[in-house]
């Protein structure tokens, strides 16, 4: 590919971030190729959501750069940041639907705010998105009337409402039955291919991720411990990577939040 066409939608370089005294990332480098699905996997609490928030500019890193379509996110002023965000979208881990609006209005929200389209076109757009996630019939329900899985799918419809350039999915498969899971997996892939957008998927569901991701990052211990295409990762030698891919509790990746020795603590600190 020639130099002039940027190959990556998001480039993260030498990024460090800590919460209080606890480092979450130290000098991490990641690249998310344009028009591809890139997955991020890693143990719970390692900072995957934090990474998405960093890309979205909701929190600022201690150092390093995050370049999205030529803009270094941490250096942008408020106004510019809001402009840049119009090209991205995020599915929150909690769904984060607006509780005072119906499902329909939730999905229509961003369209109404950012465009001057007439209401009948908005209606068509919204129904298309809701149909895609199987919730066209639930359009008049309020968020508290939805099940957990339905709320997530509604949130997914909302996230794709304006066909952004970059979509970040924070655990899109959590709480879905096998059928909706299959639907969502295909939806993410299909959106990616038909609209040419860039997708970042955070998920723990190894088989699903492997089936749609073009590239995978596994993070643990404040850094990238494994990366590559799904095929490369499956034959990756690293014990860290293998432990994660096969879901073994014991191994180089610690399952527990950093703590003092378990037996020692149970015995009240007697060594």
């Amino acid at each position: 590919m020639p130099e002039s066409i940027p190959q990556y939608s998001v480039e993260i370089e030498q990024l460090s971030f800590s919460r209080g005294d606890r480092p979450i990332y130290t000098d991490i480098n990641m690249r998310f190729p344009k028009g591809k699905v890139t997955a991020i996997m890693g143990p719970s609490g390692i900072g995957k959501t934090t990474l998405l928030r960093l890309i979205g500019g909701q929190i600022k890193p201690d150092s390093g750069s995050i370049v999205f379509r030529g803009h270094n996110i941490p250096t942008l002023g408020r106004k510019k940041l809001y402009q840049v965000r119009q090209d991205m979208s995020m599915l929150f881990q909690s769904g984060a639907l607006f509780t005072d609006m119906s499902v329909f209005d939730n999905v229509a929200f961003a369209i109404r705010e950012h465009t001057k389209l007439p209401e009948d076109i908005i209606r068509t757009m919204v129904l298309l998105k809701l149909e895609a996630v199987g919730l066209r019939g639930a359009r008049d329900l309020m968020p508290h009337e939805l099940s957990g899985g339905m709320a997530r799918r509604a949130a997914l419809a909302r996230a794709i409402a304006l066909d952004p350039k970059l979509i970040m999915y924070d655990e899109p498969f959590a709480g879905q039955d096998p059928i909706s899971m299959g639907v969502i997996v295909r939806l993410i892939k299909q959106l990616n291919d038909s609209l040419g957008l860039t997708s970042i998927v955070v998920s723990h569901d190894v088989p699903e991720v492997m089936s749609i991701a073009d590239y995978v990052y596994i993070i643990a211990d404040q850094r990238v411990i494994g990366k590559g295409t799904p095929k490369e990762l499956l034959i990756n030698e690293s014990p860290l990577v293998q432990q994660f891919m096969q879901g073994l509790p014991d191994g180089p990746v610690p399952f527990h939040y950093k703590a003092e020795d378990y037996h020692c603590e149970l015995l009240g600190g007697i060594k």
């Binding site: 965000r85 979208s89 995020m90 929150f92 984060a96 509780t99 705010e113 950012h114």
Partner: peptide, 22 residues
């Protein structure tokens, strides 16, 4: 406060809609 804790304000920010204004 509840909108904040349920990430509604964050998700508004990510939709490029300023919650201060909205």
């Amino acid at each position: 406060g509840l909108m904040k804790s349920t990430e509604q304000l964050s998700s508004m920010e990510m939709m490029a809609i300023d919650p201060l204004r909205r």
